[in-house]
């Protein structure tokens, strides 16, 4: 089997474009939230789940994640989706940015799934849904050790 070379660029599959654009722009949005979040956390120091004054010291002292979270107002880790009820706090807003970025492939894959379905590539509909389901279950904590 040889590779073939031509001069005309075929139209890019819509699934490519949909996935690429969704992932790119949500990643940018997540980066902006993660830039503003820490600033809010430091400006409104008293309005955080975790006091930033002690967080970095504990991390650099080699404390485990659970020990670091033990210093928070909740006395322990409040759960990965703690931003839902703490969106107006600096670290809650930052966690929202992280969660947004860490789940970015899910909407991208759902968009690509629709595009694959429209082009009748049903094998890739199944594969996209499988990867999307893995992200969903991973993010929801359904499959977890805790």
């Amino acid at each position: 089997m040889e590779r073939t070379e031509t001069l005309r660029m075929p139209a890019m599959p819509i699934s490519q474009i949909v996935y690429g654009e969704i992932v790119y722009w949500i990643t940018i949005a997540a980066a902006i939230v993660c830039t503003v979040g820490p600033a809010l956390a430091l400006i409104f120091m008293d309005s955080n789940v975790m006091d930033p004054s002690f967080t970095f010291g504990a991390i650099f002292a080699g404390k485990s994640a659970s020990d670091v979270w033990a210093l928070s107002q909740t006395g322990g880790f409040p759960g990965g989706h703690f931003y839902v009820s703490n969106l107006l706090t600096g670290d809650g807003f930052t966690q929202f940015g992280l969660a947004l970025g860490c789940g970015v492939a899910l909407p991208g894959l759902l968009g690509a799934t629709i595009a694959f379905a429209k082009s009748k590539s049903f094998g890739f509909v199944v594969l996209s849904l499988w990867v999307a389901a893995l992200i969903f279950f991973s993010a929801s904590g359904v499959v977890s050790m805790h």
Partner: peptide, 11 residues
């Protein structure tokens, strides 16, 4: 989900 990602450290 296990708290290993500390928001202000990772952002």
């Amino acid at each position: 989900l296990s708290g290993a990602i500390i928001p202000l450290f990772a952002a």
